[in-house]
Design a protein around this nucleic acid. Structure first.
Lengths: 235, 235
DNA sequence: GGCCCGCTATGACCGCGGTCATACTCGAGG
DNA sequence: CCTCGAGTATGACCGCGGTCATAGCGGGCC
């Protein structure tokens, strides 16, 4: 991919939208493209934050590994989304690992030019602040859900959230345009593979969910919403 | 409190540290002090974000209410800390409620001058971004803990976190310089009052914790750390 | 004083969901 | 071809911790 194309890709990102093309082109010249196979690690928790990343295609999960071997997926990022950016501006090591969930291409820009950019363009740091704010709200949603909702509700909420952000609307429901293993889904939901499998199998049997060659189709949006809300919990 | 004193208080905050005194004084002139009794609501989830808050004395908890009546405490903020700030710069309603946990005085500044300040002083928005980043990391810690740790470990971690930030070191342990009800502690940990009470009672009996007239003293830091880490979980 | 309410405390019960074991399918690679 | 590992699937078991009930205590207020 040429520097011009990379610059155009950067310009398409809301966080970099206000930056002059000239600056983006100079970033593009030091940017690297990197292809990763499914399950490949992009960086590890604790690594020095030397790169600022953008997802070009595929998906990246941000993961915390617990010593008991149980992983927790904090975020799942699709094309156009930024990761590692917070660690870069804070000049701290990455607080979690990044891993491709499918064949994925990322764009990475060295930390220094990004920090320099932040000094010169307040608009950039402002957009970063807004982005981090959105992620903070999402994290708080997760905290609340983990604290009070049963597994079924959390799993339904996870699917709905993914579908809302990336789903493509079809005649018989909303399709998630990528594959996630039950393990990843479990790690996003704070449960085990077995429970995730049990629940998804049941939903597939019931027709609330349909399997479209590895992609999940949310066939009954309302039923899932009801489960996510806790159904008859209203007092 | 005079405008001069308020300006000095603002200047003491890291997030506002880079702002000229003249600007802080003009903020101080439109700032209001507000005293709240224990359990009083400062703002509610969904309210328009008209004020930017700082804790002057006491403590404020940021709470999500679930329809089932179960509350989740997302953050507990002490003197000098900012809240409501993210909602102000995002120009969105507060995503959670704020409530005093004890007699508390807050300082509130109207949203508009804060937004104007953010436009004129990139240093401010940068400090805000760093602060939100720290909170995002803390929220991710909570997510990971809720997802994999048993209640005991989460409660121990909660106490340690509070003690690390605000504890005062004494001869027989670290004292938390404020009182939290078992209910609040439970809501911070994602459990029920009963469980929180049972565990704390046991720790008090065992001497790991000591009650100092309502304030908790962490008498055995290492034992609590071991519990928080999951003890013998290492593979 | 007497009442009420918030908070702490403790016991009995039991269900959600985690753990462990086992099996099957499928695609990649030697 | 056969092996191997990743992913999916299902059953049996049982323990953590949530739910419900009950009680005692202390402080604020009429």
């Amino acid at each position: 991919m040429s520097a011009k194309e990379i610059a155009a890709f950067l310009a398409g990102n809301p966080v970099l939208a206000g930056i002059p093309a000239r600056e983006l082109e100079s970033l593009a010249r030091v940017a690297l493209e990197e292809a990763h196979r499914a399950r490949a690690a992009i960086f590890m928790e604790g690594d020095a934050a030397r790169w600022f990343y953008l997802v070009r295609s595929g998906h990246v999960k941000i993961v915390r590994h617990s010593r008991a071997g149980k992983d927790v997926v904090l975020e799942l990022l699709g094309p156009g989304e930024i990761f590692g950016g917070v660690a870069v501006i804070e000049k701290r090591p990455y607080p979690a690992s990044a891993q491709a969930t499918e064949p994925t291409v990322v764009l990475k820009i060295p930390a220094d030019p990004m920090i320099a950019l932040a000094e010169r363009y307040p608009a950039f740091i402002k957009e970063m602040a807004l982005m981090i704010g959105r992620r903070l709200r999402a994290a708080h949603d997760s905290v609340a859900s983990l604290a009070v909702d049963p597994v079924e509700a959390r799993l339904a909420a996870t699917l709905l959230r993914l579908a809302r952000r990336e789903g493509t609307r079809g005649t018989d429901g909303v399709t998630l345009p990528f594959h996630l293993t039950r393990q990843s889904l479990a790690d996003m939901t704070g449960t085990t593979v077995e429970t995730a499998i049990r629940i998804l199998s049941r939903w597939l049997r019931d027709g609330m969910l349909v399997d479209d060659g590895g992609r999940l189709v949310l066939a009954d949006w309302d039923a899932l919403s009801a489960l996510a809300e806790g159904e008859g919990e209203g007092e």
